[in-house]
Design a protein around this nucleic acid. Structure first.
Lengths: 340, 340
DNA sequence: TGGTAAAGTTCAAACGTTTGAGCAAATATA
DNA sequence: TATATTTGCTCAAACGTTTGAACTTTACCA
């Protein structure tokens, strides 16, 4: 394995100094076009690959951005990440993905690892378990840009991109009531996570708006996995009075619910209507197709990346809070559309 | 934001040189225990965080390992990654995950990005699209350790960890025949990928072993998504003579098949039995539960990490090919278990 | 007691790049 | 023609750490 060619080799070959080479490669205005051309040619000729570590050390910029994702096996998260990546790659940033697996411990270790790798910024969505934010404070203190998305609208005072969860529940409930439902159950996420709390609040307020009383036993908090969706639905079917609709805060939970309903021979949507959340691809592939809420995965990814870029490119950035809240969109499918 | 404390600050505070501090922190044998203790104490006191970039630059080791994964939204891949991560973290390595999204282009760009980040090694599984391996040759030429897992048993002559795909088909076919099936269809992956080719070969040889003729129209190549699973199953049901079993090379495709079968009112497993591949969590949660092949995700992750560690820690590593092939395990569930 | 070895540390260079300051030549300005 | 400005480059230090070599001091052995 031969020694890698450095900026020095180019300099020697052209009888100029390394600094001139460096400036030429970066299109410094004080370098003549002739030299620039010669340098770039020689660089290609020698197969020069910039040493990222050296430039990062010297300039204090690693051009790496860390992403923390609760789980990778969700379409929502993986498409957000994909879009962040795309947007940042364009600007010369590379992306390090780490997963917390919904674990607080793991999330802390991820942050540690990212800081150690000297990332230029961190983009994160909180694990389900996470309830305190000291570890995120550490990032802020170090002056490293931090942006949260989806799970993370919180009081730590950092930039955030996500959908309007409160409003999205209203859309769902309005739709179900329009379909003639009156006892709407809610398989919710844990209320200590802001987004799920907001959905619960939205659910309650929407019912009240329609003068429908709130029934405690119809609101069940869970981790929204398929398994939990099944369990909570079984619980609902043990109630003396069944719901006539189920609104699940996640598609996997909705799928679990659907399975249980079908196993009990319950007709969806006529006996019990069903709405999920996230627009996972499978929702439109199974039978009946599941109504769900679309969170603009692509847009969220792009926006969060742009927010980061805005922040690092603006030399006089003021620590002002930027929250970007998108409107969610209800996708009505068979599981909640009753024939008139 | 105050300046970060460096090794120099510790040196000054203790009236010794930076080199002594560096050696103390690394437990160099020629540094007295007294000094080591003092240094470590002072380091903690000043909140010293080693500058990873500097040490990487100087020592030529970044302590980063790149992982390329075809898709993150698969339980198999995300649990392999999780286990690699765990194993490597223990040894002080951090992990960069990049996804190719099954795209050859993206895979190339990922490799570029990883090389640029100066990773100490690359662990990869090939994208579905990938048929040539020049980009992997580049890694080899640079002398950077490369290990492939699952998709990647190939002719590039690199270490590999995966299951015995040929053998796994035998187990599946043997089981289906034992259940009384005679016309076994195979929804296969693309045969240009070695693992899927091996499964097809195994499927054919297993049938021949039982003196069952091979029917071309029962072998359908696909990308193994849920959608493709549905399409291919529809195709199978258009045949003049239906199969009495479907062996899908992926669980999502199997799920698609199951949906179509159920929509046609076909009884599973009595009319058509079904076996998937990968042991995705949902296979044991839906009704009927789907028989599938377990690939030892955890073991693969651990082994691939250990292989990497062995290689970098062994100073006189000979470029000898190491292939680790695990036996797959069939998990029989309702979808293929006929009542006697 | 002289000589050798071991222990504990310092010195200085190196990793590859970036960057402010400086300098000479070329060009513009008056 | 003298002076100011711009252009194009060189110089040298710096980023924070690691590391081979050198240098003292202490311990050991005969």
């Amino acid at each position: 394995m031969k020694r890698k060619t450095t900026i020095k080799d180019i300099a020697n070959a052209l009888q100029i100094t390394p600094s001139a080479v460096s400036r030429a490669l970066h299109n410094h205005p004080r370098i003549s076009d002739k030299t620039k051309k010669a340098v770039k040619l020689k660089a290609k000729e020698l197969g020069y690959q910039p040493n990222h570590l050296a430039s990062a050390l010297r300039s204090g910029k690693s051009n790496l951005v860390g992403i923390i994702v609760p789980r990778t096996n969700s379409y929502f998260f993986s498409s957000v990440v994909e879009n962040i990546e795309e947007e940042l790659n364009k600007e010369g940033y590379n992306v390090i993905i780490t997963q917390s697996n919904e674990s607080y411990q793991k999330e802390c270790r991820n942050i540690e690892a990212l800081l150690q790798t000297q990332v230029d910024g961190i983009i994160a969505s909180l694990a389900n378990e996470t309830v305190d934010f000291e570890h995120y404070e550490r990032i802020k203190q170090k002056g490293i840009p931090l942006i949260l998305y989806d799970r993370g609208e919180n009081d730590i005072g950092v930039d955030y991109v996500g959908i309007d969860d409160y409003q999205s529940s209203h859309i769902v409930v309005d739709h179900l009531i329009e379909q003639g439902c009156e006892r709407i159950a809610h398989i919710a996420g844990f209320s200590h996570t802001r987004i799920y709390k907001n959905r619960i609040r939205g659910y309650i307020d929407a019912l009240l708006k329609h003068n429908i009383p709130i029934v405690e036993s119809l609101i069940l908090e869970s981790n929204l996995t398929l398994e939990e969706g099944r369990k909570k639905t079984e619980e609902l079917l043990k109630l003396p009075k069944w719901p006539d609709a189920i609104f699940a805060s996640g598609d996997y939970a909705a799928l679990g619910a659907l399975q249980v309903l079908q196993e009990h021979g319950i007709k969806v949507p006529d006996e019990i209507a069903l709405v999920g959340f996230s627009n996972e691809p499978f929702t439109k592939l199974i039978s009946p197709t599941i109504s769900t809420v679309h969170q603009h995965n692509h847009k969220i990814g792009k926006l969060v990346a742009q927010q980061f870029l805005k922040r690092v490119n603006d030399p006089n950035w003021k620590p002002v809070l930027h929250k970007i809240i998108l409107d969610a969109e209800l996708i009505v499918r068979e599981s909640s559309l009753r024939k008139k």
